[in-house]
Write a protein that binds this DNA or RNA. Structure first.
Lengths: 334, 334
DNA sequence: CTGTTAGCGCCTTCAT
DNA sequence: ATGAAGGCGCTAACAG
């Protein structure tokens, strides 16, 4: 900036004004000269230095539990769309499903002076997060695909209870009398808990029966054994496996012999899952799924965050529920 | 920092020294007092201000063509692993497959003072990128899953030619006499071009015959028609469709009626693809694939970038080829 | 062992 | 219509 000023023969103040479009009180000539010199020198203002002076950096921080997950990458896509439109940079980090990493990531992002945070928490970290939100001078936070209780910050989640009910209604219609909800351990993750509770509550009031089947990602053999036992136990009764997410769906599919899913030997076992349609429709012969529309969720979260961060919005913290879409494929038809 | 200094009753310099672990020339007492006050005040140094003074920001920039792609998210995972280990922040943006967005993203990242760049280019932007690399004072750049010609910066790519040959050898073994390589238009993307050329060159020297089948993502009907014609033309001759990437594989699978892939009516049509194993093994009855190990690629790219950016490495620009892994599934067995 | 000073690149009053 | 000066939070000589 000093170079430009010197080359034009004006002070840095004038250059600064030029950069901010304050042309009203500037001679047309200076204006043109500055433009010229900036082009010649290929000068670009240093955003970091601007941010040092201003109280904002025009960067927001994002932590996701697992960035390798295609669902997370869709969330990021949505977040990026919204932020890019407003010229906000994205500082991204992943916590690899570890709580201490999540905490240190958030602290690092804050050290980097992000103006706000989008957090897809790994779970069991609510107290710490609530603590941060309560601190005065804290930056706005939006929880993504997670809710926090009590609601201390905006949350963007799938309408999990309603979506679960929609799926179960559909399964009942298809003649499934028994549903096993397959999920990784809850681990304080609101989304998982709410879905499980929805399944249990649905079954309390209706003829449908079922169970919750927890499993650990690392243990495919164990899952295969549980599923085999379950299926054997049910004989010819129509049974459906309802997976909590894509990874679970993938594990379920692999635990089942392929012949069980299609062809003449097909067992009376349906499969469905929370999963993106794009992925589910190609899995096996096509798996019925609840698509959470993660891109929309990401956009929504970013929108809420930017409103608070840059537009001075100060309404109460709210939970925004995004409806999931039921997509029917052959895995639940007989 | 001023507050801390005041509270302790020393100058900011001393605090600065404390923060950088320069305890050798500091009384044990001051040291302890500073530690105390920092804890009390919950003080954390401003990385941005540090970066303003230093000539680096400890941030690197990443642009990917399409962040929603699971492959890209794996690349990011690898990049993040390496950067996190060295306490480097990641500024991420996506170009949504648009060249002008890619350019403006790179400029924005540079404005944000990133110390280096990892670029997964959308294609047809080589001249512009080479231009940037040649500019003096430019930050180090690593191209990821893309090569640039001539090699003006480090590139991390799959060993595309070798991988393609490996797959074709395997297909020949399985008795496929004809292979259709299905790919989106090349659009100046090195990876696509090299794979296509490998297919053509393989077929020149060997009995295997085949063709290149270009298609546009948006046009499933057209692809379905091409495939139908192709299959009809070949009657009972064993034929394999070889997809360039996951999206293409997905399109191919959807263009084919499910009965064509398994069961008694199965056509003599194999399918294989460049794709991650995790995804391919669940698709239909399991699809033979070349897994590019994107996490490794991301790590490698970040490693090379950090070496140049922070360790003063200045060797010649090189192309690092990561071997792909052939994973066999039922889609190519009869 | 610790403080003073100057400055990174920019913005913002207050003058002129 | 334009400048000068001070300061954002921190670091790096150079003193003492």
């Amino acid at each position: 900036m000093g170079d430009v000023a010197a080359a034009v023969g004006v002070s840095k103040t004038t250059i600064s004004r030029y950069l901010h479009g304050e042309f009203d009180c500037m001679s047309e000539e200076t204006r043109a000269r500055i433009e010229q010199v900036i082009a010649d020198l290929d000068y670009r203002p240093n955003k970091i230095a601007q941010g040092l002076k201003a109280t904002y950096s025009r960067m927001i921080g994002v932590t996701v539990a697992d960035i390798g997950n295609p669902f997370s990458s869709m969330l990021l896509k949505g977040i990026h769309q919204e932020c890019h439109a407003r010229d906000i940079q994205l500082l991204v980090s992943e916590s690899n499903n570890a709580i201490d990493l999540e905490r240190s990531n958030i602290e690092s992002l804050l050290d980097a002076q992000v103006d706000g945070l989008i957090v897809n928490t790994v779970g069991n970290n609510d107290a710490w997060l609530a603590d941060y939100c309560a601190k005065e001078g804290s930056r706005p936070v939006v929880m993504l695909d997670r809710a926090i209780d009590p609601i201390v910050c905006d949350c963007v989640v799938t309408d999990n209870r309603h979506a679960t009910f929609t799926m179960l209604d559909y399964l009942a219609e298809q003649g499934f009398a028994y549903v096993a909800y397959v999920s990784p351990p809850m681990r304080g993750i609101s989304t998982r808990r709410i879905r499980r509770d929805a399944v249990l509550s649905y079954m309390q009031d209706r003829p449908m029966r079922g169970e919750i089947l927890e499993f650990e990602y690392g243990q495919p053999a164990q899952l295969a054994a549980s599923l085999k036992a379950l299926i054997d136990r049910h004989g010819k009764e129509r049974l459906c496996l309802f997976a909590n997410n894509e990874s679970t769906m993938s594990a379920v599919v692999q635990a089942l012999p392929h012949a069980a899913c299609c062809g003449p030997e097909r067992l009376p076992v349906g499969i469905c899952s929370f999963a993106s349609e794009e992925w589910a429709k190609c899995t096996r012969s096509g798996i019925t799924c609840l698509d959470q529309r993660p891109v929309v969720m990401g956009r929504e979260a970013a929108g809420m965050l930017l409103a608070r961060t840059y537009d001075g919005y100060t309404g109460e913290a709210t939970v925004k529920e995004i409806p999931a879409t039921l997509c029917v494929y052959p895995s639940t038809s007989f």
